[in-house]
Design a protein around this nucleic acid. Structure first.
Length: 305
DNA sequence: AACACTTACAACCGCCGATAG
DNA sequence: TCTATCGGCGGTTGTAAGTGT
């Protein structure tokens, strides 16, 4: 065999295109449990029909807990412009100066906004007024319906993804997504992570969940195995939502090594914004601390709230 | 309302350097 | 020294969402 480079994987056997929430969850779960020592073998071990590179990219650019999302601040944009002047298209180098930002994101922002601005800067000595106007542009469009975000609020010493001896980053900036959780976070400093989970009608997603072992084994049993607590603080018309919700609990307990500290913790609560959530403590072996899980429906109505 | 065009960004592709055998 | 493999990087593409006509 010559020096010709073998493809990183069998392209005919891997899925391409956008990641589904189910795939995201699988990847997050796997990396939380086992880390990502070998990207090439990870997809197989995690049960993902993706190539290792795709998993790595998805994790680094999107799922990593310390990745900062939302629009760039004026300072960040100025930093990028300055660094680009000295470094050129060395996006990873530029990204290393902007904690929480990925090279891919910086590259995109450069190509879509900053390149033009830099040209204007060159030609017209950088009109600060225009710059400020552009800064107020609407934030990047989050795909809220297909997003799983782990927001590390107060990271304990942990085993999660801190490569190269990275220091735990500050809490991610308040994006439109993160704002869902802010009220909860501020109420409990002991919560270490907020994991936001879409509760949507993504067929693939729920089919995957339904096929997971904990649920498979329940197929012959009625749904009320997750016995809906009528005394919960949700309305009675929430039965369906709460059943799904309890499925989630069961799944998370099994997959992420979570456990409720008391039965009361398993009862979902609503915050001031009407967001459903529940608090659970991770088992000691994971050492991730206490988490607050939030679920948001595609629209509040779908939960009858 | 329907279509065309533009924008934003997630994801893919292929190359490169480092490393192990 | 050569070769195979891997992670990482930068360029590019595909497409959903937004906007204009």
């Amino acid at each position: 065999m010559g020096r010709g480079r073998a493809p990183c994987c069998d392209k005919s056997k891997v899925k391409k295109g956008p990641w589904s929430p189910a795939e995201d969850l699988r990847l997050i779960t796997f990396i939380q449990k086992h880390g990502h020592g070998n990207w090439r073998s990870l997809p197989k071990q995690a049960g993902l029909l993706r190539c290792g590179k795709s998993c790595r990219l998805r994790w680094i650019n999107y799922l990593r807990p310390d990745v900062k999302r939302g629009h760039f601040t004026l300072e960040e944009e100025e930093t990028i412009i300055k660094l680009h002047q000295s470094l050129g298209n060395r996006w990873s180098k530029i990204a290393s100066s902007l904690p929480g930002r990925t090279d891919n994101e910086i590259k995109n922002v450069w190509n879509t906004h900053l390149k033009k601005r830099a040209l204007v800067h060159k030609d017209a000595n950088y009109d600060k007024v225009e710059l400020t106007k552009e800064f107020s542009r609407t934030s990047s469009s989050f795909s809220t319906s297909s997003f799983i975000n782990m927001e590390v609020l107060e990271k304990k010493e942990n085993t999660l993804t801190m490569e190269n001896g990275d220091e735990p980053k500050e809490a991610p900036s308040s994006s439109s997504m993160s704002s869902h959780s802010s009220s909860n976070c501020s109420n409990s400093n002991q919560v270490d992570q907020v994991i936001e989970i879409p509760l949507e009608s993504d067929i693939d997603f729920w089919e995957m969940l339904d096929n997971l072992d904990p649920f498979k084994s329940n197929e012959s049993q009625p749904h009320d195995q997750f016995e809906v607590s009528k005394s919960s603080n949700l309305g009675e018309e929430d039965d369906h939502g709460e059943i799904e919700y309890r499925k989630w609990l069961k799944y998370l307990e099994n997959e992420l090594g979570l456990e409720a500290t008391s039965e009361g913790d398993k009862n979902p609560t609503k915050d001031a914004d009407g967001q459903l959530g529940f608090e659970m403590t991770l088992r000691p072996e994971n050492d991730y601390g206490k988490c607050y899980f939030q679920m948001w429906p595609s629209s509040p109505q779908s939960f009858g709230i």
